[in-house]
Design a binder for these strands. Structure first.
Length: 475
DNA sequence: ATGTCC
């Protein structure tokens, strides 16, 4: 990106003052090297978002931002609940794609001899890859219950424990879901896909805590150096995608009816108070519950594998964050509390200490912010801080962020080579798709350390621990 | 992200 187009407002904060149709500034959080590398498309898309009706304060991009559909991935935008809009492209197609972190009582030394067996068993038990189906099959009534209940429904069905629920955003159940606005086709696509990982950047990874960055917070989170943890990254599979596709079309029609001027059709949106807006909100919330239930079922499968292979089943849930959402939240804007609909697309909510929505045990210290690295590289646990509330409506980065397109990655890397080079470093990869592995080559992503450092310097969240991979099940 | 174009 040409830094001549932005003005610097801090070590890791860059502004585009409103011009043309922009109603508010665009604010990009990144270090100077990340800014130089960042796609010009992020600049354009963040500015486009800034022109949408009812946007409040600014259109934001996180340090891992890259080119997305309409909104950048790594984009945050909040809209006034009376005059604002909601956008399917602003949430993303994989509704509530997210990450959860499970903590085992095992050390790296204990797991090393079991690594192959764990990788094989996880790969066998957790369905992965495009179009994969699982052992859970839902009829229409069960689908309604799942879409309304989320992870709470999954626990009722015997997946995981009641103690998991407070460690999930929304207590594991997104309120206001309206299953009746989820189409027959979306339901059909999901009927056999519960408890499956999917493909693309989704993964299930066995990791160890390589370094504690903040001893007090690590202790509060139950993390210690050498400990083995498990990360689960997946979303709402076919259902979320179908909801996104259908409502995008509806929003194009609605925007035309309302006479909204869109910078491009990918920014299709509808007034939050319109019928289409309310229906999407209900369907999207049902999509959130689908993703929460999905991660809850996979958690159960992971615990079963660990019980069988390693003799331990007490894998506590640190936290579950969603990356692709639009949520009604109250934030202070110019000294006033306002109800806002906050779109986070490839961005993590990062509530600081004292936030009433955090459960006991986390409320005192701030919310865990889980940042998944690329395959074979580090992941990070960070924490929301008091400062986070003053940055992008309490948001942070969500991952390393792509630096090369999938197409580009296929020309640069071969899946088999990637698997072999990681194996030489002791990192096991299990995947049905060598093409997928090539697309996900570590080199196709930004350096997660740079992203996390930028998040810290920008005041988005605070580093707690670095995780390094041992084995990765890749979709 | 996605039954990788109903």
């Amino acid at each position: 990106m040409d830094l001549g187009r932005v003005s610097r407002h801090g070590e890791a904060e860059w502004w585009v003052e409103p011009y043309g149709a922009m109603r508010v500034p665009a604010v990009l959080y990144a270090s100077e090297p990340l800014m130089r590398e960042m796609d010009e498309k992020v600049y354009e898309q963040a500015c486009n978002v800034a022109s949408l009706p009812g946007i409040v304060k600014a259109s934001y991009a996180m340090p891992d931002a890259h080119w997305g559909y309409g909104f950048p991935i790594g984009g945050v935008a909040a809209f006034d609940e009376e005059e604002g809009v909601i956008s399917a492209g602003g949430v993303g197609f994989d509704i509530s794609c997210g990450v959860r972190l499970l903590e085992t009582p095992l050390t790296r030394e204990q797991v090393e001899p079991l690594k192959e067996a764990l990788a094989d068993a996880l790969y066998h038990e957790v369905p992965v890859g495009m179009g994969s189906t699982g052992r859970v099959h839902l009829d229409d009534a069960q689908m309604d219950a799942m879409l309304a209940g989320g992870a709470r429904w999954a626990v009722e069905q015997g997946f995981g424990t009641w103690g998991d629920l407070p460690r999930i955003e929304e207590g594991g159940c997104m309120a206001g879901a309206r299953p009746e606005f989820v189409s027959r086709r979306a339901r059909q696509r999901q009927a056999d896909e519960m408890g499956t990982l999917g493909s693309g950047n989704h993964y299930l990874e066995v990791q160890h805590v390589a370094h504690v960055e903040d001893a007090r917070l690590a202790e509060a989170y139950g993390l210690r150096e050498g400990q083995v943890v498990v990360s689960i990254h997946c979303g709402s599979r076919g259902l979320g995608h179908q909801i996104g596709t259908e409502y995008l079309r509806e929003m194009l029609l609605e925007a035309a009816r309302q006479g909204l001027k869109l910078p491009e059709r990918e920014l299709a949106c509808a007034p939050i108070r319109s019928e289409v807006g309310r229906e999407y909100l209900g369907a999207m919330r049902a999509g959130i519950n689908c993703a929460l239930a999905n991660r809850q079922i996979i958690t159960h499968l992971v615990r079963q594998v660990f019980a069988r292979v390693a003799g331990v089943s007490e894998l506590g849930l640190l936290f579950d964050v969603s990356h692709n959402t639009c949520k009604r939240e109250e934030h202070e804007v110019d000294g006033k509390r306002r109800g806002l609909f906050v779109h986070r697309k490839g961005a993590t909510r990062a509530f600081g200490p004292g936030h009433p929505e955090l459960p006991p045990g986390l409320r005192e210290v701030g919310q865990p912010v889980l940042i998944g690295g690329s395959m074979g590289t580090a992941s990070y646990v960070l924490a929301g801080t008091e400062e986070s509330e003053t940055r992008a409506f309490s948001s942070s980065a969500h991952g390393a962020g792509r630096s090369h397109s999938r197409h580009d990655a296929l020309r640069h890397w071969r899946g088999r080579d990637v698997v072999e080079s990681l194996a030489r470093r002791g990192i096991l990869i299990r995947s049905p798709s060598m093409r997928g592995v090539a697309e996900e080559a570590p080199g196709a992503y930004k350096d997660v350390v740079e992203v996390v450092d930028a998040a810290e310097v920008a005041g988005l969240s605070h580093k707690v621990a670095r995780l390094e991979p041992l084995a990765c099940i890749k979709g």
